[in-house]
Design a protein around this nucleic acid. Structure first.
Lengths: 206, 206
DNA sequence: GTCTATAACTCGATAGAC
DNA sequence: GTCTATCGAGTTATAGAC
């Protein structure tokens, strides 16, 4: 959607809603906020979405698509490019990059919306649990299984270890995002993230 | 506050607000919701709080107090009761229990409010980063340091490992809370939590 | 400290002209 | 598909009687 330069009004409403919902919250964002940002009147919005909730539904459909594509792609991947890599940290980073290809800035904001709403909205809660968290665990498990097959990491409960990794990464990313919002330098944040990932993967080394 | 049976109107408003903010969100909760639950008229609320935001401020002050007390108590603790414990997992659980003494059901709900609001409200974001997350890391570090001193765990970067533990526990607790809201049985949830903590602490064993 | 009454405003949504 | 105009309900907050 982002690559397409001829955006429809619906697309522009969608994008503006993602930005506003993520920064002001779903309840904190009014139809007036959205249409004001888009440059149309409130009533015009109803030609594209039947109501405010329909926008949130569309946002979750979009995110579901992103994750489904990423999971499918990584499961098909043969890791042939990484055949010559023996260092687990390097191998991990290669796999993680493959996944990040499917994430766009919109997806990142949608994740933020889901965290904002998961305790408040059942649809968001179920999506977070059954799609987002599940996909992330699947993706991590896929790479860990491949690393185990290659004998790069020691024997462990891959299911539980993948869960731990997802929780850790989520915690790190939330903290980093919040620190960035508070004006902390991204360089320091990136370094911190890399160090923590390295520590985790090295702990799995043989 | 909970133990005191002669609650003031202000206390009842406070408690009702915590419950409503955590389940419906700050923006999703109206003054009418709060006063309706308390059993007073909207206007009466303004005799106890200057406005809606002042209630949220009071909630954060309360949580700050809870964490400050927990950190102070654990830092003073001499771990004498745990002298005869040699198993790291058992030692850890004893220390974690000490911390849990200071948490009440209200504190748990306030944590939920903070997660809901951390991306939306700067005061909540700063409180989450500088008080809650920092206190939790301090608490974990205190116990890990004691375990290291006793030679129960291998040499490691305690600062980073404590961060990883906090992230993991937070991720687990969020997922568990969400699953409980979706009707999953608490027994299964508790078992899962215990297994993950055990796996983490055992990974630190000598 | 509680109440009634109400101000002043914003909310999501609709009807109907163009 | 956009607009103007408007609705009814809900929002925080205040004034003033008791």
């Amino acid at each position: 959607m982002i690559k397409n330069k001829s955006l429809t009004t619906r697309d522009i409403i969608f994008q503006a809603s993602v930005e506003l919902f993520s920064s002001k919250g779903y309840h904190g964002t009014s139809i007036r906020d959205i249409t004001g940002k888009v440059g149309i009147k409130e009533s015009s919005l109803y030609n594209h979405f039947i109501g405010k909730e329909a926008i949130l539904d569309a946002i979750m459909d979009y995110q579901m698509d992103v994750f489904n594509k990423a999971v499918k792609a990584l499961e098909k991947l043969k890791f042939t490019d990484a055949d010559n890599i023996t260092d687990p940290v390097k191998f991990w980073m290669t796999g993680a990059d493959e996944f990040l290809k499917y994430m766009d800035p919109l997806s990142e904001l949608i994740t933020q919306i889901l965290i904002n709403e998961m305790f408040l909205n059942q649809k968001c809660r179920q999506f977070y649990l059954n799609t987002m968290l599940l996909s992330q665990k699947k993706l991590v498990k896929t790479i860990f299984t491949e690393m185990r097959r290659k004998g790069m990491i020691k024997d462990c409960d891959i299911e539980k270890t993948a869960s731990q990794y997802v929780y850790m990464l989520q915690g790190l990313e939330i903290e980093n995002k919040l620190r960035a919002m508070e004006g902390e330098k991204t360089g320091k944040i990136q370094k911190h993230l890399f160090e923590q990932i390295t520590l985790f993967i090295q702990g799995m080394k043989k």
